[in-house]
Design a binder for these strands. Structure first.
Lengths: 191, 191
DNA sequence: TGTTGAGGAATGAATGTTCATTCCTCAGGC
DNA sequence: GCCTGAGGAATGAACATTCATTCCTCAACA
């Protein structure tokens, strides 16, 4: 088995176990077992559990960002771009529930807070595009004149809550429901 | 010191420590220390850490429910009742940030999931009133015809996200912003 | 009123468990 | 025979929980 495969196996095992059990209910030994490597081997690829967790997160986020941005309609009007982004976000996370569970945990932990803070204050990432949309929308008087943190909450909050319910089987997000929901988010932020 | 005081001291210490550090970063010994009791004493009042955590949650929820429902305008129109509820929820949690931090953690843990499931499927609690509002709203054709889980996400998601940002100091929720935000939530669910 | 001692409450050191991380050993390629 | 990378047993720290012991309260009695 090649080095690169082993590394990927460890990350995949960590993703599956942590998504299901959470960070602190997932011992390194179990990750090693699932990845088919020795416990010590993980430390050849990752300095610590913390580093593994963070690197995994960055990988997932980057993959999501790339997927969503693939068909982003740069030239279309604001509303359409907004709806595209949150629809695709929803679709991506429905398709990849493990990613959602993992990222959710990451977000709800000390790890995620600094990331979030940076994002709202403006750094790299896919949410920046959202931030741009918000800024343009306010300027063009299409959106309500609210702080970006508020617009962001109005747009993302419902998505995350809904994904949670979808994964718990409390609601089934099929296409028509996705459409209605994303439009409701638009109603919340539009002027 | 009376028995009842000691019990309350333990709960208060647990609330403060867990809100700040999380469940698994808060050893029983630290709770005992902060409460000014011996480590073993906690077990005279609570069967286990789990029981302490659950009982604390139930207490907080009940207190919040009672506070919010105090001035609930039963007789007013749907929109007004909805705005009242989510405004007061926001206010309560802004006033009691420790309660928010604690409940948020509880919610994002295995503990909270069953509670949430029951709620959406209809059991006791303050959210039931929201559920009633949703049902009436759909019937009266005032609200969008969406599953309750979706309406609930549209109403609560933004609040929770915003509270998080408020507590992190990323936004300051003063009265006018609260008003605008709750009205934006209404825009999201109204037909 | 002062004394005593029984019963309940509180204590915190000791225990057992669960991990992250380290480190020694070894197999396989050169 | 050496070197690299892998393995997994060993280690030590962190914690929940237990339990033998101490402390406190107060009723009963002198």
């Amino acid at each position: 088995m090649k080095t690169s495969e082993k590394r990927a196996d460890i990350m995949q095992a960590a993703l599956e176990l942590i998504a299901a059990q959470g960070f602190h209910r997932t011992p390194m030994a179990e990750i090693a077992g699932k990845a088919g490597v020795g416990a010590g081997t993980i430390y050849r690829y990752f300095e610590s559990k913390d580093v593994l967790i963070k690197e995994l997160y960055r990988g997932l986020e980057e993959k999501m960002r790339a997927t969503i941005l693939e068909g982003y309609p740069v030239e279309r009007p604001l509303r359409e771009r907004f709806l595209y982004l949150i629809r695709e976000l929803l679709r991506y996370l429905i398709t990849n529930p493990l990613h959602f569970r993992y990222m959710e945990q990451y977000f709800n932990s000390p790890y995620g807070i600094s990331t979030h803070r940076e994002r709202l204050l403006g750094k790299s990432g896919n949410q920046d595009i959202l931030m741009d949309i918000f800024e343009q929308g306010i300027e063009q008087r299409v959106l309500k004149e609210l702080p970006k943190a508020v617009l962001s909450s109005l747009a993302f909050g419902p998505l995350i809550f809904l994904l949670r319910d979808h994964i718990l089987g409390l609601v089934i997000l099929e296409d028509s429901l996705i459409k209605q929901t994303t439009e409701a988010c638009w109603d919340a932020i539009k002027r």
